[in-house]
């Protein structure tokens, strides 16, 4: 069992290495980022503990993919299998539990810890034949696949919007809108097999424009209800809302272009740094987007033209 965790650690280190990060440095940065972000989140919203529970449980569900579970069951004795599942789920939840304790939110911490351990006994992410319906089937694949993996986030986002109006908290409303964009951004984080780019008979420019157009259209479809709701109840904050809305689109475009600017390789340190810098100072996007665009055109030309 220990060998299994050593192997997991080695695999993670290799991934970080491939990303161009020294593993130890990456772990330190992750811890700092996690606690920094948590601090910000808890200072801004009273609903942060609930969001924490959702995120941590979501991560532990990701570990219960059927093929993965079958593999573990095949390799280990039943007792070892459950030990592995419990340790894995606990490790995933640990940073969240620690932060909840630091914030003296003991009940959510206990609930989270109990639930992730309970999840170790179930296969929550199954490959059943049930097909989750999606409104994005006509333009596969990012949104149709992504929507099915994250469909539960959208009702949560809409409920948060409703709560934001009820408690007259505009920031919470903006957060719910940004949550939609963060989720849609994640649809473009996964690198598709080269075959799927190669299959397109479009030029690299047309290919990119089509990708961006689809992303903008579908993210509008998902975010528009929130925007309309917020405009109706916070019309004095219209300007701020529009700025965040446009920023959501801008980062979506940036991530798409960043992905193809290095394709068929994964986003690396230079792209990551540029995106991170733009998060601190968004006007930089005016320069970053055209840069990623020109790099993407060059990269895709070798495959498409």
């Amino acid at each position: 069992m220990l060998a299994y965790f050593r192997l997991q650690l080695r695999m993670t280190n290799r991934k970080l290495d491939a990303f161009g990060l020294y593993p130890l440095l990456a772990y330190i940065l992750l811890i700092i980022a996690f606690f920094g972000l948590s601090n910000y989140l808890f200072s801004k919203s009273e609903y942060a503990p609930y969001l924490y529970i959702v995120v941590a449980l979501g991560l532990s569900i990701k570990l219960s993919e059927k093929k993965r579970i079958d593999f573990l069951k095949m390799c280990f004795k039943t007792t070892d299998y459950f030990k592995i599942r419990i340790v894995e789920n606990s490790l995933i939840a640990l940073p969240f539990v620690i932060y909840l304790i630091v914030e003296e939110r003991f009940l959510p911490a206990v609930v989270l810890f109990l639930f992730v351990n309970l999840f170790a006994f179930f296969n929550l992410k199954t490959t059943t034949n049930f097909t989750i319906p999606t409104p994005f089937g006509k333009r596969p694949f990012e949104f149709s696949s992504g929507f099915r993996n994250t469909f539960f986030v959208f009702p949560i986002a809409y409920i948060i919007t409703y709560i934001s109006v009820n408690v007259n908290n505009f920031n919470l409303g903006v957060f719910s809108m940004l949550l939609i964009f963060i989720v849609t951004l994640s649809y473009y984080a996964k690198l598709e097999n080269e075959y799927y780019v190669w299959s397109f008979s479009d030029s690299s420019k047309v290919f990119l424009i089509k990708k961006i157009r689809t992303a903008l259209l579908f993210s509008t479809f998902l975010s528009l209800p929130i925007v309309i709701f917020l405009i109706l109840f916070f019309h004095s904050e219209l300007e701020t809302l529009l700025i965040f809305w446009i920023l959501g689109y801008a980062y979506l475009v940036t991530v798409i272009l960043a992905k193809y600017s290095i394709y068929p390789y994964e986003i690396n340190i230079p792209q990551g740094v540029l995106i991170a810098v733009s998060l601190v100072f968004p006007p930089l996007l005016i320069g970053i987007i055209p840069y990623f665009y020109s790099q993407s055109v060059k990269r895709l030309k070798t495959i498409l033209e």
Binding site: T131, I132, G137, K138, R139, P140, F141, S144, S145, R148, N149, Y196, S199, F200, S201
Partner: peptide
């Protein structure tokens, strides 16, 4: 999480 129909749609869209 892509249905076979969506896969065919994707491949036709591509061309």
């Amino acid at each position: 999480k892509i249905t076979a129909r969506e896969y065919l749609q994707l491949m036709c869209n591509a061309r």
